[in-house]
Computed example of a mutant assay.
Amino acid sequence: MEKRMISSYDEINDTFVGKVDGENGYAADYGISEGIFLRINNSNLPTSVFIPNASKVLNISKSILESSDVKIGIKCDDFSLSFRMCIDDLLVFSTKCKNSFGIPNLNFLIDCNM
């Protein structure tokens, strides 16, 4: 499933938000990695990604985070959740964790350039 993402980066507060276009609110907020939060709706589908202290969490410069070319891939099965974030076609972060969140099997891409 592919969706358009609206991303914003607040350099002063070092906060990144990637929101699925057309989605409002969320039913649950899960910490999927230290400092990375995935918000999901009532259907257990991702609605946004929130990263406070983004430059530190992702270990990249604030100027890179200001790019508008951001893609986030989320893959889930019954056992694990994989999260990948690319900026300007470069992988800046990747993690895999246990899917204890109730997120259904999916292959989800949110992309700023759709």
Rank of each mutant, 00 (worst) to 15 (best):
I103R: 00
L91A: 08
N44V: 02
K75R: 14
P52E: 07
L91S: 11
S63T: 13
S100M: 10
R39M: 06
V49F: 05
R84A: 07
V92M: 02
F101H: 03
V49W: 03
M85L: 14
P104N: 06
I74C: 03
I74M: 03
R39G: 05
G73D: 12
I60Y: 01
S67V: 05
I74N: 02
A54R: 01
M85R: 02
C97F: 08
S82G: 13
D78Q: 10
C86H: 03
F50A: 08
C76E: 06
L81Q: 04
I72Q: 01
S61L: 14
N59F: 14
K62M: 13
F79W: 13
D77L: 05
N105Y: 04
K62D: 13
S43K: 09
G102H: 07
F50N: 08
K56A: 10
K75N: 14
V49K: 01
S80V: 13
L90Y: 04
F93L: 00
V92Y: 01
K62V: 14
K62R: 15
V70T: 13
F37C: 00
N105I: 04
I60S: 01
N41Y: 12
C76P: 00
A54S: 12
E66N: 09
C97P: 03
S43E: 10
G102C: 10
S100P: 02
D88Y: 10
S48Y: 03
L38M: 07
P46K: 02
S82Y: 07
C86M: 08
N59D: 15
N99S: 11
N44Q: 08
